[in-house]
Structures are given as structure tokens and as C-alpha cells.
Computed example of a mutant assay.
Amino acid sequence: MDNTALLLFITATFVLAGFVKGVIGLGLPTIAVGILGVVMAPAQAAALLVIPNLVTNGWQIANGPSLKPILRRLWPMLLTICLGTWAGAGLLQQTKGGAATLWLGLALIAYGLVGLKAAKLRVPAGWEAWLGPVVGCSTGVVTAATGVFVLPAVPYLQALGFDKDELVQALGLSFIVSTLALSFGLFGAGALTLTVGWQSALALLPALAGMAAGQFVRNRISPAAFKLCFFAGLLALGGYLCWRGLT
């Protein structure tokens, strides 16, 4: 693939990933790492995603209803996301096969099917104090191994009973913390350099364009339609990851 074709491929990838994120509040790293894995190593793809992840999730947080109560509720999970990611530092660079991607995809498919069947997962209030840190640490390890930070954080956040806009804001908060934690590991491993940082900044423009289009769609659909899009999106992302893991 020549430089022009590679540039167009990367641009289209970030537009698509940004659009999905704009609609359902997640999917930027899942789609981008999976598609970019065709032309580059997972660690390189994850490094290219740092700036788009930080900015799009910052935008997602800023457009939410109220950050303080969500932060007060989620801080134990956010702290252990960092600890889990740093504990698993180096796993992404060591990943050779697609086993981690395959299992991640299967888990997303299972969760998407449960959601589409209208099964209501709920976390009892008394469980949050201990379950939040467990979920955070597990999400951190998965992030360190795959560069994707959807599990088990996304099902956990969805089970906390947030409304549509609160859920999207909580997802953005979780993802920006995961991005920052992963960035330290990539920097220490030499995958995130000044040159890669500049390339990551350039990737921001198509990601923002796609996200703006996705948010336009999300702001015009009902909570029921959003829920359908959310779980169908998880199902599609899971299917895509399984395909990537098997090829």
C-alpha cells in the first residue's frame, strides 16, 4: 500500500469510528484498532489513537448533563482502571495472535444479545463499593492486552441505571482515563513518540468529523431507539472483533 492509499485508508477508518462513537458513545478504539490492524501492529494503532481518544472523549464528557455526581460515583473504578492498565503494561506489544481479540468479540456479542432481548442488568447499590474496583482493574488489564477498553466497563456502566446522556458521559469519562493510563504504557515501551503523537493529532480531524455526524443522529433519536442502537452496535463490534481474531 503506497503512502496516498494508506493515508486515505486511515482517514476513512477514523471517520467511520468517530461516527459510531458519536451515535452510541463508544467504538472509536474498537473499530480503529481492528481495521488499522490490517496495515500496522496493534501497539502502533493504539498509539495513533491517543489524541483522537483524548479529544473525542473530552468532547463527550463536556456535552453531558453533570460530571460531578458521575465522577463521585465512579472514582474507585477509574482509579483501578489505571492500576490494572499499568500492571498489564507490555501485554499489547507481546500480543502475537488474535486470541485476545476473539474472546473480547465473543464477550461483546453475548452482552449485545442480552441487551437486545431486553434483559435488564442492574447493579445493587450496596455492590458498587466492591464491584466498581474489580471492574476497573479487569478493564485495565484488558486495555493493556488489546488496546480496547470496552469490557467489562461498558456492561457495568450500563447496569448502573444511567439515562441516555448520563451513560454517554460516563463512558467518555471511563475511556479518557483508560486512554491516559494506556498512553503511559505505550510511551514507556517506545510505541508513543513525538512523531507518532503528531500523526495522532492529524488523525483527530476525521475522527471529529465522524463524531459530529454521529452526535447529530443521536440527538434526534428516542431513548428506545438509542438503546437499540447501543446494543446492536455492541453486537456488530463483537462480530467484527471475532472476524479480526480469526483472520
Rank of each mutant, 00 (worst) to 15 (best):
W127G: 04
N57W: 06
G90Q: 13
G161T: 02
C229H: 11
G64Y: 04
D163G: 12
L182K: 15
I24Y: 06
S138V: 08
L228Y: 10
A100Q: 13
K96F: 09
L71I: 12
L71T: 01
M211S: 00
G25S: 09
A12T: 08
L180S: 13
T193I: 03
N57Q: 14
T143K: 10
D163A: 12
L49A: 15
L116I: 15
Y240K: 01
V177L: 09
P76R: 10
T146K: 13
L104Y: 11
E128Y: 01
P133I: 03
L91C: 03
L74R: 00
A100P: 05
I70M: 00
L104P: 05
L151Q: 05
W75E: 05
P133G: 01
I10N: 03
A87Y: 03
G105R: 03
A191L: 07
L151K: 00
G238M: 06
P29K: 07
L49T: 03
K96Q: 15
S178G: 14
A99W: 10
K68L: 12
V23G: 05
G188E: 14
N3H: 13
F162I: 01
P52L: 10
L194W: 13
L173T: 11
V217C: 07
L235K: 05
L28D: 01
G88V: 09
I61C: 09
A224F: 11
Y111R: 07
L116P: 12
R218Y: 06
V141L: 15
G190P: 12
W75L: 03
G233L: 04
A212N: 03
V55Q: 07
R73L: 06
A203K: 02
Q199F: 06
V154F: 04
A144D: 12
K164N: 04
I51Y: 06
F175N: 05
L121E: 04
G126N: 10
N63S: 14
V168K: 15
W243L: 15
G210W: 07
F149G: 14
N53V: 12
